[in-house]
C-alpha cells in the first residue's frame, strides 16, 4: 500500500472512519529523526496488509498535531476504530511500530 498523505480534509475518512487500523506518523521536514524514520514508514507500508499507514506534516497541519497532543516528533500513533490505541515518540525500529497495532 501507498503511504497516505493525511490532512484535516481526509482525516475523518482515512483515519476516524477507517475499517482497518491506521498508523499515523507525525513529522516535519526539518526534523532529522523524522527523516530517519521515513524509509521505515515506507517499508512498513509495503509490508502491512492488515493496516494502513499515513503521514501528517505538523507544519501544514498544526491543528491535528495539537488535537492529538503531539509535543515531539516523530510521534507515531496507532488508531483502531478512530481511537488511539498506541503511541511511540522518537525514532523507533520497525518491529516497535508494528507492536503499536497489537
Amino acid at each position: 500500500m501507498e503511504v497516505l498523505h493525511i490532512t484535516t480534509e481526509n482525516f475523518e475518512s482515512e483515519v476516524v472512519k477507517s475499517e482497518m487500523p491506521v498508523l499515523v506518523d507525525f513529522w516535519a521536514s526539518w526534523c532529522g529523526p523524522c527523516r530517519m524514520l521515513a524509509p521505515v514508514i515506507e517499508e512498513l507500508a509495503g509490508e502491512l496488509t492488515d493496516a494502513k499507514i499515513g503521514k501528517i506534516n505538523v507544519d501544514e497541519e498544526p491543528d491535528l498535531a495539537k488535537k492529538y497532543g503531539v509535543m515531539s516528533i516523530p510521534t507515531v500513533i496507532a488508531f483502531k476504530n478512530g481511537e488511539e490505541v498506541g503511541r511511540s515518540v522518537g525514532f523507533k525500529p520497525k518491529n516497535a511500530l508494528v507492536k503499536l497495532l497489537k
Binding site: 526534523c31 509535543m71 515531539s72 516528533i73 503511541r87 515518540v89 522518537g90
Partner: peptide, 17 residues
C-alpha cells in the same frame, strides 16, 4: 512523559510550546 511534556531537545520540540 517524554513526548508529553518532557523533552531533552529545545530546538527539536520548542515549536510545540
Amino acid at each position: 512523559l517524554i513526548g508529553a511534556g518532557v523533552s531533552y531537545c529545545a530546538t527539536c520540540d520548542g515549536a510545540f510550546f
